[in-house]
Each structure stands twice: as C-alpha cells, then as structure tokens.
Design a protein around this nucleic acid. Structure first.
Lengths: 338, 338
DNA sequence: TTGTATGCGTTATCAC
DNA sequence: GTGATAACGCATACAA
C-alpha cells in the first residue's frame, strides 16, 4: 500500500502538504504542487478510504436501498441505480448497495457505523418504516418516491398523478368515451405503493372530469392474467375503446388479445402505455406512451443528498413532469363499435 | 457517535474486551460477555467502519462492477446484483456498486484505496481490460463470465455451450430438421461477449452433430428487427420448423409473427427460449426454455471472493448446468410444412 | 480470562 | 506557503 507519507517523502515535502494538495483546502505553490502530483502518479497513490473516513468524518459513500420484489419494472430500478452511481461519482462519492431484506435495520446499521454519509431510498411506501430510522438517526437522505408524510424529507419522484391524467386526457381528446386502466398486480396496491395509487387516482380523477367512463383493473404480468382482465373488461363494458397499461408485462399480451379479438390498433382501439420510451418503441404498432425522465430521478436524488451533506436542509419535494409521446397505437375513437 | 470506548466504560471493562466480544477472537467469560452485549444494544453501538478498516486492514466491502449497456437482459443483472449483496451480508460484507463507465480505472481505484477487499466483475468480455488491473493489483476477485484466459482467476458462469446444445438436442429429438437461432444484437457478438458466442457455438456444434440444418441470426429487440430476421429466415429456409431465441425482447414479436404467418405453435413450429423461467411462463403458449440458476451465480461469486480473502487461491472455473424445461411451445415437427 | 499500549493513514489545528 | 502533530476509533500484540 502506498501511503501519503511515502508520497510526501518522494516529493520532499511534509505529509500535510500532500494532504492539502489533494483536498485543495489551502494554497500551494505551483512548483511543490507539481512535485507532489508527479510523486502521486508515479507511485500510483490512492488515499486509504478508511483512514480518510476516520480522520475526515466522511466516508464519501452513500447507501442506496433497493427493493427486493420484482413486480416493479426492473430495468427502471437498474437505470436509477446506475444513474445514482454515476452522479455520485461526480461528487467523489461511491454507492453502497443495500437490499431491503435487512429492512429498516439496514439503514440504521449503515448510518450508525459511519459507513455511509447519506442514504437514498428507492421504492418508498406511503408509510415507510425506514423513514422513522432516518429521522431517529438524523441521517442525510433523499427518497425516490413520495411518502404520506414528507415533512423534513427530500423527495423526488415522477408526477404519477399527472401521468395518469395525461393518459386520460389523450384518450378523451381522441373522442374515446369508455376507457380501461390495466394496472399493476393487486399486491402492489395492497402495500400502498405510492406510484401505483397516484397514477390510478390521476387517471380516475382526470377521466371523471372529462366525462369518461373508466374502470381500473389490477393485473399480473402473465398472459392468462391479462386475458382474464381483458375478457372481463369487454364483458362488462363492450364499448371500451381506450386502454391504458401501466404493467409493462401486460403490454405484449394486451396487443395480442386485441388482435385476436379482431380489434385493430389504433382504428378500433387505442392503447396508451405508461412506460419508458425504448420499451414503447419495441412494440408493433409503436406505442403512444407517457414517461418521465428516469435517470434524472437518480441524479436529483444524489444532488439532494449532497446539498444536505453541505448543510442545506430544506424540505424538498420534486415531482418530475411526465410527457406523452404520441405514436401509432392511439387514434380517434371509432364512430361505431363492433 | 457511540464508540467502543464508551461501550467499554458502560460495561465496566476495557476497550479490548469489547473488541474481542465483537470479533470472537478470544474467549470471554459468560458474565462479561453478557454485560458487554447489553451495553452495546443499550447504547446502540455500531463499530465505525472506517476505523475498523484502518485498524483491521479489511474494509468488509466488496465491489461489484456492473455493465452499462442495456442489451443484456437487465432483470438478470439486477437479480445477480441482489443475490451478491445478500450473500455478501452473510459474510458480514457490504457491496459497493461500480459502473463500468470508469473502466479499468474504477477497479484500480477501489482496490488501491482499500475501499474494497475484493471485486466481482459482471459481464466479463473474452479479453477484458479489467482483468489486467486485477492481476496488476493482486486484487482478490471473482468473475461472473468466462474470459479467454482464466489462469489464476476464479470464474463462475452458466454453461452456455451446454445451453445451446440442449436447445438443439431438444428440437432434434422432436424431429425438427431445419432450425434457426435468433440471437442478441450484432453489437453483442462484435464485442465478443462470451455468453453470446458460447451459446451460439454450443447450438451450432450440437446441430451439426445431430444432422440439423441450422442458421444463426443476430437480432435487436425491436419488432421490426425480429420481423426482418424472421422474414429472411423463412425466405432462405422455408422448411424451418424450430426456433431458438436468446434475445428476450425478440420472444414476443416472434410469437406474434408466427401467428400472423399462420404457423401455430407448437403444431407447425416449435420455439425454445433461452431465458429465465418466470419469463417463459408469461407467454402464451408457455415457452419451453433453457435456463440456469441465476441467483447461484451471485452467491458462488461471493463465496469465491471470500475464500480468496481467506488465503485459498485455487484456479476455479465453475460452469453451472442449465436445464431445459419443456412447456407448451415445443412439439413434434410437422410431417409436412405448408 | 482480562487489561494496556501501539499503530493503522488520514485530516486539521497550530505554529512558523 | 509549509511543517509538526494531535486526534479519529478500532484491532491486536504484548502483559498480567
């Protein structure tokens, strides 16, 4: 292991000088800085993380708590994790991955041990038990998601209410009168996942105001589940011409089922997906979709934690605005239904 | 911050005793152990990670290097990351997430700074530049994947050659004579991703030995791409009755295209997917699939790193055996093709 | 079975 | 603009 002391000796300066060259916390003459930097790269010196954490009272690590369950769309989680990691590096921080199987204790452990300077929580529930730990330990944090009580917390999330409303508005503008929402598995609503409930309420509220008849149906990702839901919707509301899908796994099956039912998209039925653009592009026809800036969720969360580490502690709830991209799967409502 | 010294005072013992109670590295009488443990939980003590790393020469952290590109099936990556994290916790280790945008330097930084005691590399290329860094720094590591030169390295991966062969064998047994392999995007083969090349060679070799006529086609995940590949296959080899798909995004489109072409699965054409069981279950018909134990990839990698941290340094290449689960998408080859 | 003392590699305070 | 030096909190060799 190359130490700071060795660098100092090689450069012919004191250890403190090397430290200050690295931290930039005091003025260094150009010649000495050059000598020190040369010695550093010559010896391949990297400061010892543990020593730095001990002396500097900062580990330069933030913890990212990821959910275990797989009923959220996994690629989105991964994209967030990666954007968090890359954003953190911009601040000289690394990211520690914590799985939620440790529960709130994981947060406590990481905070109390000084392993992490801050914590980012993903998949935040309306009443999330981890939040109590954040408050109790006074841990700097940012939440990706929106809990019921966000006082004193920094949160960032998609504006799911808006997303749901956008989908309803789009269908209404196209003249659809009866619309159906195919949602996440029932379990997701049962554990009160905010994103699911908020999308639903935005959609239903929007539909109501626009005079649409709307139904909402939870749905697993399997073909059978979608088939069951689809059949039931058409039985209950044969006049349904607009479909909104939030469960990514249900998109493919829904398109197949519409085709099998002889309903051509978008002539006979319109489909609006609530999903990422790349996914929407993969289907045929390409899907009109409502989506938000996923990576920004991660970068914003990191920025929030960083500003809190620097002493700023404003309440902060940021909702990122989703946009609707119109593609081939939505069109004017048919004048007459089969 | 609660320190070990405070715990010692509270329990009426010396600091070293507290330390030894925690590490279990020397015998402690039952009464004092009890007093110490009580003090620990009373004060909510957690050892300071940095101090521990500094004094103990071990950070109790392993780094996991994840790929950036999204052309590998992301849920599998996530599952590995989670299984690595959970397995590491069993050994008292945490996991640091490193994205590959730092390249080999990320590995160097983490190893040289003592931030991590070991490294797990995901998505290992045939000639992976990160491996040189592992060798140069003498870092304890495990690779998920199989590089060209694995000397001195611990590797674990699916036996993709076997997986490809299994798919070919299954189709051969069912009487298919002309088969097509729909693979990953061309870019994946161009960067010589081992899993892609090995699956392909296992499939082609197996097909050859079994007297099958086989074609292999790279394919993007988009509907258009699959349609193009599918059309070309049928044009070149109208007698093709067996399809093997490795690109998860291509599965849905392929099934749609077969249906549109009037080919009923499995009566007119058989489909074998190389994917995880849950995904295979989602389609209709449920897919016959070849899959390997994904989570075990993570746990094995962790075990390999841990044993190396303890001084064992055997060359070790473990290939996990995939299995074929027969479902509804494969059946006897049609006696006559339309 | 327990206590004492030293050192790990930084940061930051004080002095020059 | 630079150099000593005292923490930081823990692990462990050495003593008892």
């Amino acid at each position: 292991m190359v130490t700071l002391a060795e660098v100092a000796k090689a450069a012919g300066v004191s250890p403190s000088t090397v430290s200050y060259v690295l931290s930039g916390k005091r003025a260094i003459s150009e010649p000495t800085r050059a000598r020190v930097e040369q010695a550093i790269s010559l010896l391949g010196y990297h400061p010892h993380a543990g020593a730095r954490a001990l002396a500097g009272k900062r580990s330069h690590i933030i913890a990212l708590v990821v959910p275990l369950h797989t009923d959220v769309y996994v690629p989105v989680m991964m994209e967030i994790a990666i954007s968090v990691t890359m954003a953190a590096r911009q601040f000289g921080y690394d990211v520690l991955l914590i799985t939620n199987d440790e529960g709130p204790d994981g947060v406590r452990r990481v905070a109390r041990s000084g392993l992490a300077d801050g914590v980012i929580l993903m998949d935040v529930q309306m009443d999330d038990p981890r939040i109590a730990v954040l408050r109790e330990t006074g841990t700097h944090s940012a939440l990706i998601g929106l809990p019921r009580d966000a006082r004193g917390l920094a949160c960032v999330d998609h504006d799911f209410v808006r997303a749901g409303r956008l989908a309803a508005e789009h269908l209404a503008e196209l003249g659809h009168r009866e619309v159906a929402f195919i949602g996440y598995p029932a379990a997701v609503y049962e554990r009160h996942a905010g994103y699911a409930e908020r999308t639903r309420s935005g959609f239903e509220e929007g539909a109501r105001q626009l005079g649409l008849r709307a139904v909402h149906r939870p749905c697993d990702g399997t073909y059978e589940s979608v088939a069951g839901v689809f059949t039931r919707i058409l039985a209950d509301r044969p006049g349904t011409t607009g479909f909104v899908v939030q469960n990514e796994g249900a998109i493919g099956p829904l398109l197949s089922l519409l085709r099998a039912a002889g309903r051509v998209v978008p002539e006979d039925a319109s489909v609006v997906a609530l999903c990422q653009e790349p996914l929407a592009e993969q289907f045929s026809p390409r899907l009109t979709a409502v989506s938000g800036p996923t990576r920004e969720l991660g970068t914003r969360a990191v920025e929030l934690v960083m500003s809190r580490l620097n002493g700023d502690v404003p309440d902060d709830v940021t909702l990122l605005t989703p946009v609707l991209s119109r593609r081939e799967s939505s069109g004017r409502a048919p004048t007459k239904v089969a």
